[in-house]
């Protein structure tokens, strides 16, 4: 019996160890605290809310690439795996390690406002990325405007369709702000024209769902002029559905996000007709951090510009919008 107990205890400890290793979720960071700021080194702490999405993987990659150009920069990445409390702990850890600049892409505003505010009050410059927090206790916010991007997509669609046509809208999750904004901006831009949204469905940002919904749109509608999807995988799924039905030549496909290995690749391969970039701001965050280090004043809000990629300009890196 006691042997049994011992065994159980041992396996329990082992399990805890494994769990601890699994939950650490950081890719670098053996005590940067002691040396932060000294010897001309510049330590940036980056708290990412979730690396399950390709777009956030890209954000981290952009930060790493920008940091690589400055040998004095060291970046500590933390991934909260979509857990608010874990991210809170990460922000507190980075703050107590006294990093030179703290980057946070928060999972949600309310619960992270306080820990970010505390770090800011302790004198650490804080750059908030993509999703805002409440109040004013941070140095600067860097993000893009989904509504503006949706509007740009709508304007472009109006132009290529000659102000008239039938559009299928494959929406991201309509309970999410990006989904609502990308839809609202698009509808604002096409309002007053003869473009009609003849079929709309939530595809939950997922490619297989988009293909399913597009199958239904194809079954119902004898003619479709254009598919507007709230992300590039959605537009790709719609293209595959149309191609399976032998109707891909009949319509145009437009997506959003323009990640290099997704949307931009699809445009380069002739699968999508256009994609609109939703910039990660990773590079801008590192540049802003360096400006803060030099003692420059940075604006409270930096709104990122977007690019449009079409077949004609994809090779030269797209066209800047507005």
């Amino acid at each position: 019996m006691s042997r049994m107990l011992r065994l159980t205890r041992r396996s329990f400890t082992l399990g805890l160890l494994v769990l601890a290793c699994a939950c650490k979720g950081e890719s670098k960071g053996s005590g940067p605290a002691e040396e932060g700021g000294k010897k001309g080194r510049f330590v940036i702490g980056m708290s990412q809310c979730n690396l399950g999405e390709p777009w956030r993987v890209q954000m981290n990659a952009d930060i790493a690439a920008a940091a690589k150009e400055h040998p004095e920069i060291e970046v500590i990445f933390k991934d909260a795996q979509n857990d608010t409390l874990k991210q809170r702990a990460h922000v507190e850890e980075l703050a107590s390690a006294k990093v030179d600049v703290l980057l946070v892409s928060p999972k949600e505003a309310q619960p992270l406002t306080e820990p970010i505010g505390k770090a800011f009050d302790a004198g650490i410059p804080v750059i908030v990325l993509d999703r805002a927090v409440l109040g004013e206790r941070f140095t600067t916010f860097i993000g893009a405007d989904n509504k503006k991007i949706g509007r740009a997509a709508g304007e472009w669609v109006k132009k290529v369709l000659g102000g008239k046509g039938k559009v299928v809208e494959l929406k991201g999750l309509m309970t999410s702000t990006p989904g609502q904004d990308r839809s609202a901006g698009f509808r604002e831009a096409i309002a007053g024209s003869e473009i009609a949204i003849v079929f709309e469905a939530d595809m939950k940002w997922l490619e297989p769902e988009a293909r399913k919904e597009m199958d239904s749109a194809l079954a119902r509608l004898p003619k479709i002029d254009l598919v507007y999807a709230h992300n590039d995988p959605g537009a790709h799924g719609a293209y595959l559905a149309a191609r399976a039905a032998g109707r891909e030549k009949e319509m145009k496909f437009v997506g959003i996000d323009a990640l290099p290995h997704e949307g931009v690749s699809y445009v380069a391969q002739g699968i999508l007709d256009a994609t609109f970039q939703y910039p990660t701001g990773g590079r801008e965050a590192v540049e802003t951090a360096l400006r803060i280090r030099k003692g420059e004043k940075v604006p409270k809000t930096i709104t990122l510009g977007s690019r449009r990629f079409t077949k004609d300009d994809v090779q030269k890196g797209g066209e800047i919008i507005e």
Partner: peptide
């Protein structure tokens, strides 16, 4: 590597 394995 956290991203989709595609034809690119």
């Amino acid at each position: 590597g956290g991203t989709k394995v595609a034809t690119a």
